[in-house]
Design a protein around this nucleic acid. Structure first.
Lengths: 166, 166, 166, 166
DNA sequence: TTTT
DNA sequence: TTTT
């Protein structure tokens, strides 16, 4: 069933990176998303939405995002519950990010790096594209960067899993 | 900042309709949205997402949706907090629905009624469309229904606020 | 960069299924999505949005959807261009569906079957879920169907790739 | 019926601002949205998506966005057709933006201004919020940056129609 | 506290 | 006809 969320906001704190017993990376952070309207007192409020990311993207988030970073998230709303130390059931609603976009420019550059997206799917998608885009020939040229995924000239960079040194 | 959620799922209970002291209608319900994947035990889980709707749409939801109804929601993620009777701060994340779509067929019909969308905006949008669509002339012909908003021939129907008898 | 579309509408024609030279399935169909407002003449118009689906989901679409079916789509907006027989460049905008949801009830049932979602990812997601949901234990039970993926009792069914007999 | 698009990308040219005979502002621009995957040649392609905005937001777009600007769009997919000078029917698919977010930082600032959202609705929403958020009182505190589009007291700023000097 |  |  359809379940889709897209958010753009700022991290309220540095991402927390952890590993499951099986060694899978998970990162948590909170996105403050300003509301497009003001409340009765004329103040602009924000929603504070908890984000969870897994695997490579969790590590990317931990490496590239920090408190205050502007980020975009594309994912799903998920709910779970647990019992707290008082034995009460606590219900949690959070966003499971399938892709995280880094929107903060670096070094006065024009910003807009992006990481995330399915890693294994990559090949599937390429296969698809190979067929659909044969008449297209339009490409963007994010060329010539090596180890440092953020070029010093401030150009926007899309960081796919394959480009990253981890 | 961008904050958009789209869900399709089933109501876990009848909507609860209330009125604020100022007489504004608010409805609450929970949408069970089945996950597209199964867990390690091979079970398909669901997310249980709390929805809030306001005003006319709240009343429409109360009138047209019930436990088990298939519904679509387009809205925003919102968070708030309150203090419970033990003096603990409880954080709540819910979806403020801007439009609710009724996806349950009625009377063996082919379903797909839709209500919601901005009521006041309607005129604005019409003004826009009047200009943009002058070359279009394509319309959908879900015609000829009168009082019963769900035509007996099972044709899909969009129920705008203006069509509804309240 | 973020690119997300979610649609619910009805097929204007049966899906067209084709195969690329490499044997990859592609299906095309058009979704008529009624606008939530009426035009100046009081008519409700619709948008006719071209959808492309790949691989297993293309075959599912061809098998389970037909003209008039109510369907949901979660995907991306894509553009491409080609040269027509008059040598003119034609620009095309369509939606590449990543998941397609079947919203048409069968046999007077309460509808809401869903197919699609990443096939290979399935395992990744399960791995994730195995960790996140250990306190959850909530499951939905789509049990006991065999060859015909649509149970005769009209229960809603999520058709994952693995469940399908192809 | 559900129809929702969210995009983040860069303008390929300055927005074109026009006025209808009735004096309603309309702006058009194209958003280049880089794909999250590379094609078979290893090139990263982009989708070039045409955006239409109306009224105040059209004027805001014309004033605040230019070729190369990073922008977010929340809107609907719309289709229309017209007859070209050769008498051929041309089909057009574009995104009608309901809100446009300015994501380009100004003068090395921390970026993320946002304009758009319904103007008339503002009051409606406030009325709603007045009731829902009485327990909230949380505001976001992105403090200590000055340069301009961000107020000196560090308050987060969404540029709503009312705040703008036109 | 969960739907089909 | 495309952005960074």
């Amino acid at each position: 069933m359809l379940n889709r969320v897209v958010l753009v906001g700022r991290l309220t704190r540095d991402p927390e990176l952890r590993y499951t017993p099986n060694g899978v990376a998970v990162a948590n952070f909170t996105l403050a998303v300003n509301r497009p309207f003001t409340n009765q007192q004329g103040d602009r409020e924000a929603d504070f939405i908890n984000i969870v990311v897994w695997r490579r993207q969790a590590e990317n988030a931990a490496n590239f995002l920090k408190k205050g970073s502007l980020a975009g998230v594309d994912g799903r709303v998920q709910t779970r519950s647990y019992e707290n130390n008082q034995g009460q059931k606590v219900f949690v609603t959070e966003v499971m990010a399938e892709s995280v976009q880094f929107l903060e420019p670096k070094n006065g550059g024009q910003g807009g790096g992006n990481f995330g997206g399915p890693s294994r799917d990559n090949n599937d998608y390429q296969g698809q594209n190979q067929n659909r885009n044969q008449n297209q020939g339009r490409k963007s040229d994010f060329s010539n960067f090596d180890d440092d995924p953020f070029a010093s000239d401030g150009k926007p960079i899309d960081i796919s899993d394959d480009d990253l040194p981890f």
